[in-house]
């Protein structure tokens, strides 16, 4: 038996077609997510992290089109599915925790109702007993995520931010998905609640052997919870590898600079170096390596040819850079 990865994204390119231009939001991105592992996708705002995630569940805004690539979930290409098949796949196989936790619930329906509706929908049949069963499941889910099961009939505005986030996670777990995509799930929360939510996600991931894609711009969150890390820059994946490799042995100049730009609370006091410059315009991306205008190590080759992913320190550590590993002076 050959072990296949839970999710395999191969050569994905997603572009936005605007009135006069074409924004290459995601270009030739490939990565895999294993069962029971958490992959952190990091990068500056606007680097295409969310577009990758939306491409996987095929919920892009009208202007967005997937140009090339395949997205294999359990070896089945999601991009080949019809709209209706894809609709059925959502939440059953892949669920999604959106960036805007606060508004993810419909304000005029109670929380339990919004979770049961998806259980009933995915269950296929509608009957009174199924409905009862669904409500029972919601109570259990509430217990799992650490909410009071008595509050299933509460309205969203009666929950605090952290509770809402737990309820959203409960909703995401409602149909036992294989893959969970969490898009900046903790950005809006304070540090203590953030920590609790991260622990909860971690626990669910282990207990349910869940594959998780964790999207954030906050490297410290990734360092804490992810096994694998992917660094994105301007629509390109520039480096992937295990968390320890990336944080201790990151080879791409952008990765290094990104890590340096984050303060460490426990470590010694060092000078934080902000990243100079702004990300490029994705309608007219720079030739060659997209990072070269901001890269201190750029050479002529970087401007001419796009660097490809190459194995670096191990078979699982890939870097797309001609000068990988070289010291930044």
């Amino acid at each position: 038996m050959i072990l296949v990865a839970l999710l395999e994204v191969n050569d994905l390119s997603t572009h936005y077609f605007l009135k006069e231009s074409r924004v290459r939001a995601v270009d030739n991105v490939s990565f895999t997510v294993e069962r029971g592992k958490m992959l952190g996708l990091a990068g500056e705002s606007g680097c295409g992290k969310t577009t990758v995630a939306l491409s996987i569940i095929r919920m892009l805004p009208p202007a967005g089109k997937i140009i090339t690539g395949e997205i294999l979930l359990d070896n089945i290409d999601l991009l080949k599915k019809s709209k209706e098949e894809m609709r059925k796949t959502r939440w059953l196989d892949v669920s999604y925790v959106f960036q805007y936790a606060m508004n993810a619930f419909n304000p005029v329906m109670n929380v339990g109702e919004q979770i049961t509706e998806v259980i009933i929908e995915k269950g296929g049949i509608k009957s009174r007993s199924i409905k009862k069963e669904a409500w029972k499941q919601v109570r259990e889910l509430f217990e799992i995520v650490g909410l009071d099961p008595e509050r299933v009939k509460n309205y969203p505005h009666e929950f605090s931010g952290g509770m809402k986030q737990r309820a959203i996670i409960a909703m995401a777990m409602a149909c036992n998905p294989k893959l969970l995509i969490a898009d900046e799930p903790v950005t809006a929360l304070d540090v203590i609640v953030e920590k609790k939510i991260l622990n909860l996600l971690k626990k669910l991931q282990k207990d349910f052997n869940l594959g998780v894609i964790f999207i954030t711009h906050d490297l410290s969150v990734i360092a804490e919870s992810c096994e694998e890390v992917g660094i994105m820059y301007a629509g390109k994946l520039v480096e992937v590898g295990s968390a320890t490799t990336i944080f201790h042995n990151g080879a791409h100049p952008y990765t290094k600079m990104l890590i340096k730009a984050f303060p460490s609370i426990l470590g010694e006091k060092t000078y934080i170096e902000p990243l100079e410059g702004i990300p490029p315009d994705l309608a007219n991306p720079p030739t060659g390596c997209r990072f070269h205008p901001r890269c201190p190590l750029a050479i002529d080759e970087c401007k001419k040819k796009v660097p490809f992913f190459k194995q670096y320190s191990s078979s699982r550590h890939l870097v797309a850079c001609y000068r990988a590993g070289e010291k930044i002076i």
Binding site: K88, R90, N106, V118, E121
Partner: peptide
Amino acid sequence: EDYITTARAKGLKERRVMFVHARKN
């Protein structure tokens, strides 16, 4: 609104999204 996006991501039928989630609001 975000909850409509969520409702769609939940893979609900478009009719339900339109008439239950959107129309009510």
